[in-house]
Amino acid sequence: MRYKTSSVATVVRLLEHARYEVLPTPSIEEKVLAHVGKDVPLTVTASPGKGLEATLELTERLTVHGYTAVPHLAARMVRDRAELSDIAQRLTAQGIEAVFVPGGDADPPGDYPDALSLLEEIAALGSPFSHVGIAGYPESHPTISDDLTVQSMWDKRRYATHVVSNLTFDPDVLVAWVARMRGRGVRLPLLLGIPGPVERTKLLSMATKIGVGESTKFLAKNKGLFARLAAPGGFTGERFLEKVAPRLAAPEMQVEGLHVFTFNQVEATTAWRRDLLDQLN
Rank of each mutant, 00 (worst) to 15 (best):
M1K: 03
R2M: 15
A9T: 05
T10P: 04
L14M: 06
L14I: 00
E16A: 03
E16N: 05
A18Q: 04
R19F: 15
E21V: 08
V22T: 07
V22H: 10
E29G: 02
L33T: 06
L33E: 12
K38P: 03
V40N: 01
P41T: 02
V44M: 07
P48T: 09
P48M: 13
K50T: 03
A54N: 04
T63W: 05
T63A: 10
H65R: 05
G66F: 01
G66R: 07
A69Q: 02
A74D: 08
R76L: 00
E83K: 07
A88D: 00
L91W: 06
T92M: 13
T92Y: 12
A93Q: 11
E97V: 10
A98D: 08
V101W: 06
V101K: 02
P102T: 08
G103E: 05
G103Q: 00
G103F: 02
P108F: 08
P109H: 14
L116V: 02
L118G: 10
L118D: 04
E121R: 07
A123V: 01
S127W: 11
S127M: 13
P128T: 03
G136H: 10
H141W: 01
P142C: 13
T143A: 15
S145N: 08
D147P: 02
L148V: 15
T149V: 11
V150C: 03
M153N: 10
R157T: 11
Y159I: 11
H162D: 14
P171T: 04
D172W: 10
V173G: 09
A176Y: 01
W177M: 07
V178K: 04
A179Q: 13
M181V: 15
M181S: 11
L192P: 00
I194Q: 03
I194A: 01
M206H: 11
M206C: 06
M206D: 01
A207V: 10
I210S: 12
G211N: 09
V212Y: 15
E214V: 13
S215H: 01
T216Y: 09
L219A: 15
A220D: 14
F226S: 12
A227N: 11
L229Y: 06
A231G: 04
E238V: 00
E238R: 09
R247T: 07
L248H: 06
P251I: 08
P251D: 05
E252D: 14
G257H: 04
L258T: 01
V260S: 02
T262W: 04
T262S: 13
V266I: 10
E267G: 00
A271D: 07
L276G: 01
N281L: 01
